[in-house]
Amino acid sequence: MIPPTRDHITGLVLAGGLGRRMGGVDKGLSRLGDEPLVAHILRRLAPQVGPLIINANQNHDIYAGFGRPVIGDRIEGYAGPLAGLEAGLAACTTPYLVTAPCDSPFLPADLVSRLAESLTAHKASIAVARTGDQLHPVFCLIRTDELPDLQAFVNAGGRRMEAWLKRLRWVPCPFDDCPDAFANINTPDELRAHQAGDTAR
């Protein structure tokens, strides 16, 4: 099998959280350097995918200003990344969806191609980034026909990505050569620590 090309993959930026550890502010709109975090993600992810959409549950008008469709969770109660993934899969018009969180502005330039190669080589339905022993479930490439299983899982009360993975044929994709690319920014202190030039990575 040949790995899917970018035209067959929709990108989904997950920006639907409440930003509790960021002091309750909308994390994707927090500024790193001269731009909001979400702008860094969009710039890095856009060349790797075809369509690109944003999952957000507040400030829709601001997110729409980045020129991409904005979708909210369809599951009530800020149910976490799986709710954003469910909304993204439901809106997706391509055979594959790749996700990235709004708080990891240094994501690899070859994230999608490497995930696609792993998924295809192992005939899996989802490939998940891994560095060392650390999985990064919010960096994943998934076949969109897994939407019904995800819906069944969340409708039964499931909320943890790792628990849902166990239901699927999934494969970890190693990124041990670039562990810093998955650094995320969860707190004001972390945001301040990454100011002053880190966006050049």
Rank of each mutant, 00 (worst) to 15 (best):
T5Y: 05
R6V: 14
D7I: 11
D7N: 15
D7L: 14
H8I: 01
V13Y: 02
V13H: 02
L14R: 07
L14S: 08
G19H: 07
R20F: 13
M22W: 03
G23T: 03
D26F: 01
L32A: 03
A39Y: 04
H40A: 03
H40R: 05
H40T: 04
R44P: 02
P47R: 09
P47I: 14
V49F: 07
H60V: 13
H60R: 15
Y63P: 08
A64I: 02
G65D: 09
F66T: 02
G67N: 09
P69W: 07
I71W: 15
I71M: 14
I71A: 12
G72T: 12
E76P: 12
Y78R: 15
Y78L: 14
Y78D: 15
A79M: 11
G80S: 11
L82F: 06
G84V: 00
G84T: 00
L85N: 03
E86D: 11
A87K: 09
A87R: 08
G88N: 02
L89Q: 05
A91N: 08
C92L: 13
C92H: 13
T93N: 14
T94M: 07
P95I: 12
V98A: 06
T99M: 08
A100L: 08
P101H: 10
S104D: 04
P105A: 07
F106M: 10
L107M: 15
A109E: 13
D110C: 06
D110M: 03
L111D: 10
R114E: 02
E117M: 00
L119H: 00
T120N: 03
A121Q: 08
H122M: 02
H122S: 13
S125H: 04
A127W: 03
V128Q: 08
V128Y: 06
V128E: 06
V128G: 07
P137E: 05
C140M: 09
I142L: 10
T144S: 11
T144K: 04
D145S: 04
L147S: 09
Q151G: 01
A152N: 11
F153A: 08
N155F: 11
A156E: 06
A156T: 00
G157M: 02
R159A: 14
R159S: 14
E162M: 10
A163W: 00
A163N: 10
W164H: 00
K166Y: 01
L168R: 13
W170Q: 04
V171A: 01
D177I: 00
A181N: 11
A181H: 12
A183Y: 10
N184Y: 10
I185S: 00
P188V: 01
A193V: 04
D198M: 12
D198C: 10
R201K: 10
